[in-house]
Design a protein around this nucleic acid. Sequence first.
DNA 1: CAAAGACATTGATGAGTGTAAATATTTACG
DNA 2: CGTAAATATTTACACTCATCAATGTCTTTG
Lengths: 118, 118
Amino acid sequence: MSMSLELTPVQAAACCAPLARQPLSESEAEGIAPLLKALADPVRLRLMSMVASHQGGEACVCDLNDAFDLSQPTISHHLKILHEAGLLDREKRGVWVYYRARTEALKNLAALIGGQAA
Amino acid sequence: MSMSLELTPVQAAACCAPLARQPLSESEAEGIAPLLKALADPVRLRLMSMVASHQGGEACVCDLNDAFDLSQPTISHHLKILHEAGLLDREKRGVWVYYRARTEALKNLAALIGGQAA
DNA sequence: CAAAGACATTGATGAGTGTAAATATTTACG
DNA sequence: CGTAAATATTTACACTCATCAATGTCTTTG
């Protein structure tokens, strides 16, 4: 089950109810926390940043693997977590797999915790 | 690279270099991840939101305890994590302890992951 | 078809985490 | 002082997580 697009509570909270405006409901918090959890790891933060800052907002796994001293399965695991959180899109082209940053998800998250409601 | 924008790693990460502009360094990622980790829990997210949205941006622990079905030590533990991450300030007034949201820290974090550099 | 390469999955393990019960600390007040 | 109230700390435990080694799946190419 890949529930990556079903983020209604998150989006609702992300666009119109910054953290500092009114207390988050329990369900809102439980919808948002997984997104932060996915980002709350140094390796995943760098992966997210590498993909998002790469040409076209996407990057091949082959490029990402070499940037770390970690095993290939570990990188694959982190990418999966970011993907399942809805922060990275995944596309297979031939033998290679490309991940694309969902900048809209990042912006929503930023708007939620930082203010600046959309 | 003709556009020169020389910044220290700290400033770059905190104020002027969104996640999507250039790949985060290992040390930058290791500095930011703990902040996200502190927020990446439903209870702490609600605590943070309750404090930030409260009158004057601060709230008494006594108010926070009652909002959850958790034990008092557990709430105290979560508040400590948010405090040590630099997201909440702590001030004791008489018998009561008040926590205050560091909105600047939240804004910096939001600017980093969502863009909108300061 | 066979071999090789890119990426994912499985299984195992040591480290970290959220929680509560019990206890300690601090402050106010009689 | 002694008691009560507010908050923090300690201890213990079930659970999750980051990681790697081994293996599996898919795609290209000889």
